[in-house]
Every structure is written in C-alpha cells, then in structure tokens.
Computed example of a mutant assay.
Amino acid sequence: MSDNILSLNLATTRKQWGFAEAVDGCLRAGITAISPWRDQIAAIGIDEAARIVHSNGLRVTGHCRGGMFTAPDDAGRRAAIEDNFRAIDEAAALGADCLVMVVGGLPAGSRDLPGARKTVLDGLAAILPHARAAGVPIAIEPLHPMYAGDRACVNTIDQALDMCAELGDGVGVAIDVYHCWWDPNLAAAIARAGEMHCILAHHICDWLVPTRDLLLDRGMMGDGVIDLKAFRALIEAAGYHGPQEVEIFSAEDWWHRPGDEVLRTCIERFNSVC
C-alpha cells in the first residue's frame, strides 16, 4: 500500500513558526508528517518536542541534520562524531524515519576532495553502531556540487550509494530534487538506489530561473524548471512510495508569507504538479 503523503520540512516555515506553532499549523492544514531541524528541537527541548509528536500521532519523516564530519583536525572530527551521537538520540526520541546527513565540505584550508570524502566515510562508520543500536537509519543526502566546498562533498546519488555499499545495513540516501535534478545519470542512480533498498527520504521543492541565492531561494513546486512528475515516477519505479517532504528555503518570498498560506500552497502544488 502506498503511503505517499505530504510531509513538511519545518525549514519551510522556520521564519514564521517555532516547532510547536509549526505543528499546530500542520494539524490545521491536515498535514500529519513533519521533519524538524535540531535548532528547532533545542529551542523547545527534546522531551517536549517528543511529547508533542507522539501525543498528536505525527510521523517524523526525518530529523535534520547530522553530519559535518570534515573538521580540519582530530579534535574537531571527534567533536563532530559526539554531536552526531546526540543527533541520533534525538531522532530516536522523536521516532524519526531517519537522521538526514549533510556530511560536510572541504576542511578549512584544504583542496583535498577525495580526502574529505574519506573523512566522511570514516565518520559515518564511527557513528553507525550507535545508530543501529538506537534503531535510527542514517540517510546520506547528496548536495548539489555548488556545495562541495563548504557543505557537502558527497554530490551525487551514486557517490552516496557507494558509501552505503561500503558501510552496510542501516545507511541509505535522502534524495532531494533540488540537489539531484541536474544529474545526467539520475534515472540509473535512482534505479540503483531502489535495487539496494536505500531510498529513505524524498525531498521536493523547485529550482527557480533565475535563482537569486543558491542557498536561500528555493522555489515552491511548480514555480521552477524541475520536472517533478517525472522525478516522482523514477522514485516510485524504484519502489519508494513514502512521503514527499517539502523543504523550501526562501528568504525573499515564502518566509515572508503567513505560515497557513504557505501550507495551503504546498498542499495545492503537491496535488497538482508533483
């Protein structure tokens, strides 16, 4: 049975609402799946956040985010691993489907991209036993190559899947249309992810032309150039029929609109263009 429903990544309304207000807005709109960010959880406390989630029967499609393994020294890398342990514990308390990994870019002063990817692999291997024990799947999210230097040195689905193959059980991928739509190997990569049973999350938004800010100007579905229906068809052909999670960073547009309007638009576009 398909459970292909709309989930709201709470970054989409982060300027309008805190965690509790966002949950209330989702419930008013009939949205019962969310994906919060760690700063939003920290602001209210993990115990209260978990109480709100469980008392309202919410599905947490992901917890954002772990990763950032690529510190320039051993102390920084150890600190990142310890922070990821805490993120795993938070995800477990929320009953999250996965912990999303934004793995980190080049360490400060480095030009060694293969070395950064090896650091990421080592970091994932270090946290994986704790994640398995907690029952929290780890979702590597490949980010667009424009972020290779500062945010994520894993930039294609295939790169993430290569790591999954090396790490084994408990690791998969979060496939975000914003980051992957351009990939000439997209269809084959998504099919491979399906064959590996590695698709843990699917994030949606749109790519605007022109894009005013590469981080903070994502588009509402239908306002850009991504063929969302074709992308969804690839995901479903690979066997994933889970939630589609709307994640929109929009400093000059959607973050300025009332939260209830944003949610109404998300639902309308999800039903019409996704």
Rank of each mutant, 00 (worst) to 15 (best):
V262S: 03
R28C: 12
A93Y: 02
D223P: 11
P243I: 07
A133G: 13
A193Y: 00
L216W: 15
A201Q: 15
A50K: 00
R59E: 11
L167C: 12
P36Y: 01
R117A: 08
I5C: 08
G105E: 07
L6M: 15
T265V: 15
E21V: 04
V154D: 02
P210W: 12
A50D: 00
T61L: 01
G95T: 12
K118Q: 13
R51I: 06
R212C: 13
H54L: 10
L161D: 00
R111P: 13
R59Y: 10
P36F: 02
P36S: 02
V171T: 12
G76R: 00
F270R: 06
W207T: 08
L143G: 02
V171H: 10
G224N: 09
A43H: 01
L99S: 13
A75K: 11
H203C: 05
P258H: 12
A165Q: 10
R51H: 13
R14Q: 13
V225A: 10
R86Y: 11
G30P: 11
A189R: 00
L263H: 01
V154A: 05
I267T: 12
A139S: 07
M146Y: 12
C164S: 04
Q16V: 11
C198D: 08
C266N: 07
Y240F: 13
I88S: 00
P129R: 07
F19I: 10
A131M: 12
I41K: 11
F19R: 11
